[in-house]
Simulated scan of single mutants.
Amino acid sequence: MREPTAVQQTRRDVGPITDRGAARRRQLLDAARRVFERQGFTDARVADIVKEAHASHGTFYTYFDTKEAIFVEVARTVIEDMHEDMAVAVPTSGLDLRVHDAIDRFIHAYRPNAAIIALMEQLALDSVEMRALRLDLRDSFVQRTRRGIERMQADGSVPADLDVEYTAEALGAMLEYTCHLWFSLGKEFEERRLADALAGIWFATLHPEGHGAP
């Protein structure tokens, strides 16, 4: 691996210092994402990325030192995008509406990012950094679910003795793996029927028979 110049190292450490530099970096990230989604991580090369971005190798190495480094940035962008997609207003009343909203928002956020998430999971087996990023993405959703359940416990919608932490973990795992089967492995589902089935399982878990009406 070539040693970066002082200017290159500075740009890698602190980021672009001009609008033009920021645009070039963004162009490389967008191109890298398309290449990774099309070719996977192993078969993708820096040469493929610079060709896709209509950039030079020198431009690439101004901002990134390896293929792995730019994939990490692509993964971070996916996490930010998913956080933004899920950070919308949540219905304030009606357990059924809250559950359906949470599932629909997760599916909407997962779908366009499924290919990169699948690559993150593959790389997480051998990369401590990628494992941390993948778990961070998962934890953000689990913690959001946990906070939602805690709010519903507070207003009496959910039993007070429910194990919130592990319920959020289990419901999150079910939803994540279903989306993995659907968007990454190609299992065919009818979207509304599937979302309704998932919501039914969530509702039955959070509102067991005999618990007071929300």
Rank of each mutant, 00 (worst) to 15 (best):
R2D: 07
R2C: 02
E3L: 11
P4A: 04
T5H: 05
A6I: 09
D13G: 03
I17K: 11
I17G: 03
T18W: 01
R20C: 01
R24L: 09
R25G: 07
R25H: 05
A31P: 02
A32P: 07
R34P: 13
V35Q: 12
F36Q: 12
E37I: 06
R38G: 07
Q39E: 15
F41C: 05
A44Q: 04
V46F: 02
A47K: 09
I49H: 06
I49D: 09
E52F: 05
H54Y: 06
G58P: 07
F64Y: 13
F64M: 08
D65S: 10
D65W: 00
D65M: 02
E68N: 08
A69F: 00
I70L: 02
F71P: 06
F71H: 07
V72N: 01
E73T: 10
E73P: 10
V74H: 12
R76A: 04
V78L: 06
M86C: 03
A87P: 04
A89C: 00
P91D: 12
P91C: 09
G94K: 14
D96R: 12
H100I: 07
F106L: 08
I107C: 07
H108M: 06
H108P: 03
A109G: 02
Y110H: 11
R111L: 02
P112R: 04
I116Q: 13
A118G: 13
A118K: 10
E121L: 08
L123I: 05
L123K: 13
M130H: 06
R131T: 14
R134I: 01
R138Y: 08
R138E: 12
R138H: 13
Q143R: 13
R144W: 00
R146G: 07
R146M: 11
G148C: 02
R151H: 14
Q153A: 05
A154R: 07
D155R: 13
S157E: 10
S157Q: 10
S157H: 11
P159A: 12
D163R: 11
D163P: 15
E165W: 04
A168V: 00
E169S: 09
L171V: 07
L171T: 10
G172N: 12
M174K: 10
L175A: 07
T178Q: 10
H180C: 10
W182K: 03
W182I: 03
S184C: 15
S184K: 07
L185T: 08
E190K: 04
A195I: 14
D196W: 02
D196H: 05
D196T: 11
A199G: 14
A199P: 03
A199N: 04
F203Y: 15
T205M: 04
T205D: 01
L206M: 07
H207M: 03
P214C: 14
P214D: 15
